[in-house]
């Protein structure tokens, strides 16, 4: 009989097994529909009580760039919606260091995204974590489901 590894099993409030979902964002905002579609899937998926994280690599890091203002181009400003991720309990946003470096960006250039920890009297905590390519590679390996946008 096949041996089952129970050590990694996590059960959520409704008694279902929790899977690790990672949404990988690789496209610049505004130029294509990928970032918007991805964000909608994340927000809708957040209702299912899974272990959700987002990764931003390549041009995907531009999605988090500070000061995006679409008023003149007549588009809806999707950048503002990232601010709601904390309310949807999406609190792990991994940004690849190498992608930032190639684009002349640092953590300071990104939006200050936070989530509030209800268990610690709504203490505000940062959602963005800058990780190396090697660390991200390990994180990808740990996922049950990976979706690319």
């Amino acid at each position: 009989m096949k041996q089952i590894d129970w050590s990694s099993l996590v059960i959520n409030e409704s008694g279902k097994a929790v899977k690790k979902f990672m949404y990988v964002n690789r496209h610049a905002p505004h130029g294509t529909i990928y970032p918007l579609e991805g964000l909608e899937v994340v927000l809708i998926g957040a209702a299912f009580d899974q272990d959700v994280s987002m990764a931003f690599i390549g041009d995907g890091v531009f999605q988090l760039n500070k000061g995006q203002d679409t008023a003149d181009s007549g588009m809806k400003n999707v950048a503002l919606t990232y601010g709601a991720l904390g309310d949807y309990e999406v609190t792990k946003l991994y940004v690849e260091q190498e992608s930032l470096d190639e684009r002349g960006l640092e953590l300071n250039d990104l939006m200050n995204l936070t989530w509030e920890d209800e268990e610690e009297n709504w203490a505000e905590k940062p959602s963005i974590q800058v990780v190396s390519r090697a660390q991200l590679s390990d994180l990808l390996e740990q996922q049950d489901v990976i979706l690319n946008f």
Binding site: A28, P29, K66, Q68, A71, D72, S73, E102, G104
Partner: peptide
Amino acid sequence: SGTAVTSMVESAMSSSTIYALESDLRARG
């Protein structure tokens, strides 16, 4: 400035004139 393609763009500026659309810059911060 300060990106992996900055030097490529800067060297092109010696022979050509480069323009960028303002509203697209603003949309991207």
